[in-house]
Design a protein around this nucleic acid. Structure first.
Lengths: 161, 161
DNA sequence: TATATTTAGTGGCATATACCACTAAATTGA
DNA sequence: TCAATTTAGTGGTATATGCCACTAAATATA
């Protein structure tokens, strides 16, 4: 029989992407007066928080491919929000930091972010929002990836039931 | 004082994207033998499920921009999985359908998807997974977007507290 | 019915994100 | 110390996704 609907209804990956598109839109609408995309604001905030992190470190924190991070940073560097500073002791490493302009932008945009966040919490409910973030953060952990990779998919030789 | 950490910890939008990257990676690793990306498998499944939907309808179901859907479909059309059929009665409309080859691919790949899904449920727990999907699907609803847009962000004139 | 408005899709451009191949630098080990 | 391996980044290419401007077709309105 046709199990296509089941795939659609139960695929957490698809559900996650769909929700991510929706929420991304909603946040971006609120952030738009700043001229920053949602991702860009997130990135600036992470950079502000993880002072002087290397690209590698930042990529790991963001659960993002290193080269993807490099590409994503380019517009922010071009626009003067971010700069890469070569590390003195390890010449392979580049440290990422906000320019004064970038820091100012991040701080200003935080007011808009607060609005989006308030709307979100009001729309979903504080408890629900909190629980959702916990679940999502759990999935983002390295330990979750390990658990997933180790987990049974029902096809292992000798996997009972 | 510095509230940057708060932004990082509490931003549901960022948490959603991070988790989406992580889970996307994990699912793709499992699906990779099929040659389909995670998004592509989702798309084929949705097309199989929503038989003869127009691009517009499909985009709405996927909470996706119409033109984005058009772009995303291109590789699938090029590879012979999907075709666009002009509607007879409304000549603006194109209906999306799987080719026999595309249907076969979707069905075959469902075995891999089941593995990924099983791993996910085992790693997170069935209850948790179920609750997460419910929350995510709620956010994807049009009604959620409306609630978000209507919701107070604490800056309305006369908004008490 | 003729015009104004809305709707469906397309194509161009920009960002987001991944993989691969490659370079340079650091680290390991014989 | 010198070769083998690992690590950090970069650049190219491909998909994912959004916005805008534009065309064509349908619908609403005067």
């Amino acid at each position: 029989m046709d199990d296509t609907p089941k795939v659609w209804d139960f695929c957490t990956n698809s559900a996650l992407k769909r929700a991510s598109r929706q929420l991304g839109q909603l946040y971006e609408d609120v952030l738009s007066p700043s001229g920053l995309r949602g991702t860009q604001y997130s990135l600036l905030s992470q950079i502000a928080h993880s002072k002087n992190a290397s690209l590698r470190t930042l990529a790991d924190l963001l659960v993002m491919d290193l080269s993807a991070l490099g590409h994503t940073l380019k517009p922010l560097i071009r626009d003067g929000y971010v700069e890469l500073v070569p590390d003195a002791s390890d010449r392979r490493v580049k440290r990422v930091q906000l320019t004064p302009f970038g820091l100012k932008k991040q701080q200003e945009t935080t007011d808009l972010w607060r609005k989006a966040q308030a709307r979100f919490e009001n729309a979903l409910g504080k408890q629900e929002a909190e629980a959702l973030r916990r679940a999502l953060n759990g999935i983002s952990e390295t330990s979750f990836a390990e658990a997933f990779t180790r987990a049974s998919d029902g096809t292992e030789p000798g996997a009972g039931k």
